[in-house]
Amino acid sequence: MGLSKKPSSQNPLKTWEDLDRVLQSQFKLAKKDNKHFHFVNPDIYEMTEDEIIAEGTKQGYKVTRVNGELKFE
């Protein structure tokens, strides 16, 4: 049988799909509680901070840097 290849990371970085899922669910909830923003820690994603900002802006979000996090509005 043998061993499987050693994982490269205990906690793999999150992907575009993960970020999209978080933002979609948070903004759907925002309609209920009148909170129209969400903070994201860019360090947990495989994409760079600049890539996240560019794609967020392209998709209609206002994305700003706030104390090391990204604020999506």
Rank of each mutant, 00 (worst) to 15 (best):
M1Q: 09
M1D: 11
M1G: 15
G2K: 15
G2P: 11
L3R: 13
S4R: 14
S4P: 06
S4W: 07
S4D: 12
K5E: 11
K5F: 08
K6S: 07
S8A: 15
S9K: 13
Q10F: 14
P12R: 00
T15A: 02
W16G: 07
E17I: 04
E17H: 10
E17N: 14
R21Y: 12
V22Y: 07
V22E: 06
L23Y: 03
L23Q: 02
L23A: 02
S25D: 15
Q26E: 15
K28A: 13
L29E: 12
K31P: 03
K32C: 04
N34P: 00
F37N: 11
H38K: 07
F39Y: 15
V40R: 05
V40Y: 06
N41L: 05
N41W: 04
P42D: 07
D43T: 13
D43A: 14
I44L: 12
I44D: 11
E46V: 13
M47L: 12
M47K: 02
M47N: 09
T48P: 06
E49Q: 15
D50S: 15
D50T: 11
D50M: 12
E51S: 13
E51N: 12
E51P: 09
I52N: 04
A54G: 03
K58I: 00
K58W: 04
K58N: 11
G60W: 08
Y61M: 04
Y61D: 01
Y61N: 01
Y61S: 02
K62N: 06
K62G: 05
K62S: 09
V63K: 03
V63M: 00
T64Y: 04
T64K: 13
R65K: 09
R65N: 08
R65I: 09
R65P: 05
V66T: 07
V66D: 07
G68D: 00
G68R: 03
G68C: 01
E69T: 12
L70G: 00
K71M: 07
K71L: 06
E73V: 01
E73W: 00
E73S: 08
